[in-house]
Amino acid sequence: MDILQLQQDIIDYSKEIGIDKIGFASPSPFSEMKSRLIHQQELQYQSGFEEQDIEKRVRPDLIFDHPQSIIAIAVAYPSKMKVRVVSKKGERRGIFCRASWGEDYHHILRRKLKLLEEYIAAKVPEAKFKSMVDTGELVDRAVAERAGIGWSGKNCSIITPEFGSYVYLGEMITNLPFKPDSPMEDQCGSCTKCLDACPTGALVQGGQLNSQRCIAFLTQTKGFLPEEFREKIGNRLYGCDSCQTACPVNKGKDFHFHAETEPDAELAKPLLKPILHISNREFKEKFGPVSGSWRGKKPIQRNAVIALGHFKDETAVPDLIKVLTEDPRPVLRGTAAWSLAKIGGAEAITALEKSAEVEKDDEVLSEIRTGLSLFR
């Protein structure tokens, strides 16, 4: 088997199936990443969504028998909508981050990795693979960096010269010994625009993220959002792009290569009020195809409630009162109390006063009383 020819054939085929960048990396342990992950764990900066076994995250040999190389892929996604919708008084809208526009990227990349597996297996029947996208054990960024896809930016994203950081990442461990590519030189230089743009100071320093303060993480939590973050979340329903949009490399980067990554404006920037009362079935039918739905409707509804308070949308008061008085979930009732207090007005105050008399949940009562104290 001519491994170099096979490698070139794979590169050529990857372009045919819509893979925008491909690289090859050694499967040796990611020793530097291990030290960083341990430090993150000690500082309690992890989100909790990651693989908890650090050894599995940095040692391909623990999750694949005798790995010989790793293939890394990247697929570019749009940064702008072709069809735009406008948020206006009485019809306020939330926003999903760009990585959640279009079809769930996990499905997109898994299909492309599957095609790669089938192509290689047809040429080398004894080939073995383990492919993963985002939810696998390995750190996608570390693999992509080693494979020369891009450099690891100060915003903790892989930044490619061609597409900026607007790329989805995936990888495939294999028992075939491909020639590794060279990592790319860091090109962030002295720029700190992403750190300056972070709304919550989650980017502690270049390349270090405190996930517990990151809005992208906070929008996915299911409990009460801490008070200090509610104003900062704005109208974000899922994810955050501040550190990406601030990046000079991303300026002017907008690629529409793949139909499946194109956003439906009504999904990417949906009206807020209808979200408050959406049923489980309606939520799955409408938002199920996008990656931002993976945590279910509760975080999205809570964030929609906060967004209405952020906009001080008086037309939403009846909807928020309905949540406050009828929703069975304390987090939604308490968050509605916060938003009503933000919006203000006689109707909101009356609703809060009435709820204070009948509410049984201590956390919700605390939110109601805090809200009422703002008026007094």
Rank of each mutant, 00 (worst) to 15 (best):
R92E: 11
I17N: 04
R59E: 10
L109P: 08
E42Y: 01
D53W: 06
L62H: 04
S31T: 11
Y77F: 14
A127L: 08
G48H: 07
R111I: 00
S47D: 07
E126P: 08
D53N: 13
H66F: 01
P60Y: 00
C156L: 09
K89P: 01
V133K: 04
P78D: 08
Q68C: 10
F64T: 11
H39F: 10
D134M: 05
K88P: 05
A121E: 07
R110T: 09
S47I: 03
G94I: 00
Q44N: 14
Q46I: 09
K89H: 05
G23Y: 09
E91V: 06
Q52S: 14
K15C: 05
V86P: 00
S26D: 15
I71C: 12
S26F: 10
S69H: 13
S31L: 12
E16P: 04
E137L: 02
A25I: 13
V85I: 13
G148S: 14
D61G: 04
K130A: 14
I63A: 03
A142Q: 12
A144D: 14
S131L: 13
K128W: 08
I73Y: 11
E51A: 02
S157P: 03
S87I: 05
I38A: 01
G23H: 08
K89L: 08
E137K: 01
I19L: 12
S157K: 13
W101D: 06
D65G: 00
I38F: 07
Y105C: 06
K15P: 01
V133F: 05
R84M: 11
Q68L: 12
K82P: 00
E126T: 15
K112R: 15
L43M: 13
S157I: 11
P67C: 08
F30G: 00
E103R: 15
M132P: 07
Y45G: 03
D20C: 04
Q41D: 11
C156T: 15
G18D: 11
P27Y: 03
Q44R: 08
E145P: 12
L113Y: 06
K89F: 00
E137M: 01
G48P: 03
D65I: 06
S31C: 07
E50H: 00
I38Y: 02
D12I: 15
G18N: 10
F129R: 14
I108R: 07
K130T: 13
I63L: 01
R36T: 01
I70R: 12
K89M: 07
I108C: 05
R84H: 12
L138N: 02
V83N: 10
P60M: 01
M33H: 02
E51D: 11
D20E: 08
P29R: 08
R98A: 06
E55P: 03
